[in-house]
Design a protein around this nucleic acid. Structure first.
Length: 370
DNA sequence: AAACCGGGGTA
DNA sequence: TACCCAGGTTT
């Protein structure tokens, strides 16, 4: 908070920042994006759009957003529905922990704020799934507060505008960028300004092939003036990806497949997956059939080992070996919560990660061929 | 295949 | 507090 007061004072009578903001606002009014479904909407819709936009581009978000608000028109409706219903409407957008945070936050707002979204920046920032930049965006768009955002687009734009070298995820560089973001804030029209920054970053100051010739900041942009645009921002330092292995047990019983809901945190948090074991564990048991009998109470015929494929995450590669196992006894009623026999068609509608979707689709294809 | 990304988790 | 993580899209 002190920091913002400081920049406010410093910002006063600073013609350079005034020029910057003026150009952004003027460009936004002439050429920026208008008529997006969440522009000028209530804080719930602004919040929802910001969470969806954290992970996905505007054109992709729009249909999901419209379906979501049609199904969950208010915070109260969202809070009172089940997590699975919320995840189902998020299905296809990915990043499901954000949907779960959204749902959790809606319930928290009902309890702690009597259903009314908090208006103060600090309270917004304290909500699950909302960090500094998202809290600022909500404050600016919904409450016209004078708060600076710093999302990926703005990082790139500012790194170029000031020719700041160094990976923008690095602590030191990020601190510089935040300072600039605050220093450049206009006194008025913060919502238009903020949308302008986002739109400039998304439409003009793009990662590759930026449209410098039509950029309103061209004459002041240090990267442009020094021909550094293609070199900035500095890319993330590269790392070698570790590799892991996993065996997926595809237990099939007629039209059904056994899935388990993964724990809330970690890889594929809260998503439905077939049971899987790391190879070391299975080697000990030797026989996947014995493993299935022990853990799932199912007699199985080991029908087929599908070909191993690789799924690449940001931080490691996962080599997946799918084993197709046909269940031959009628499986006992599932006792554990978070385990279910699901019709493959229904499973494809549920919240499942991409490699699982691939496998389920392959199972369906095989079935049709039979 | 690599780059990207805002917030959460953890040591 | 300073890292490190996650997963889907874009290039």
């Amino acid at each position: 908070m002190e920091e913002r007061v400081y920049t406010l004072i410093k910002n006063r009578n600073n013609p350079r920042s005034k020029l910057f903001a003026h150009r952004v606002i003027d460009w936004q009014q002439r050429h920026g994006r208008h008529g997006l479904p969440w522009q000028g909407a209530d804080v719930y819709r602004v919040w929802l759009s910001e969470i969806m936009l954290q992970q996905t581009q505007v054109v992709t978000v729009i249909p999901y957003y419209l379906r979501f608000v049609a199904r969950f028109p208010t915070i109260a409706v969202l809070a009172s529905d089940s997590e699975d219903a919320v995840l189902a409407h998020w299905s296809g957008l990915g990043y499901y922990s954000r949907a779960r945070n959204l749902h959790r936050t809606a319930q928290l707002i009902m309890q702690r704020y009597e259903g009314k979204f908090p208006q103060h920046f600090e309270d917004i920032l304290a909500l699950p799934g909302i960090g500094r930049s998202t809290a600022a965006a909500i404050s600016a768009f919904a409450f016209h507060e004078r708060c600076a955002i710093l999302d990926g687009n703005v990082k790139r734009l500012l790194a170029r505008y000031h020719a700041i070298e160094g990976y923008t995820g690095e602590k030191k560089i990020e601190a510089q960028l935040w300072q600039q973001a605050e220093a450049l804030l206009p006194k008025r029209n913060v919502a238009v300004y903020t949308q302008g920054l986002m739109d400039l970053g998304a439409l003009i100051c793009t990662r590759s092939k930026p449209q410098c010739p039509i950029c309103p900041l061209q004459t002041d942009c240090a990267a442009y003036q020094n021909e550094l645009v293609t070199q900035l921002p500095t890319p993330r330092p590269r790392k070698v990806l570790p590799e892991k292995h996993s065996t997926f047990l595809l237990l099939l019983n007629g039209p059904d497949i056994l899935l388990e809901k993964r724990p809330g945190s970690g890889i594929w948090g809260g998503l439905w997956c077939p049971p899987h074991v790391d190879p070391g564990l299975l080697n000990e048991a030797q026989d996947p059939r014995a493993y299935c009998l022990q853990y799932f109470g199912t007699e199985t015929i080991h029908t087929l080992a599908l070909s191993t494929f690789t799924h690449t995450f940001t931080h490691f590669k996962l080599h997946i070996t799918p084993l197709l196992l046909q269940v031959i006894n009628k499986p006992k009623q599932i006792q554990e919560a978070g385990m279910a026999w699901l019709n493959v068609d229904d499973a494809l509608q549920a919240a499942i990660p991409t490699p699982v979707r691939k496998l389920l689709q392959e199972i369906q294809t095989r079935r049709r061929a039979l």
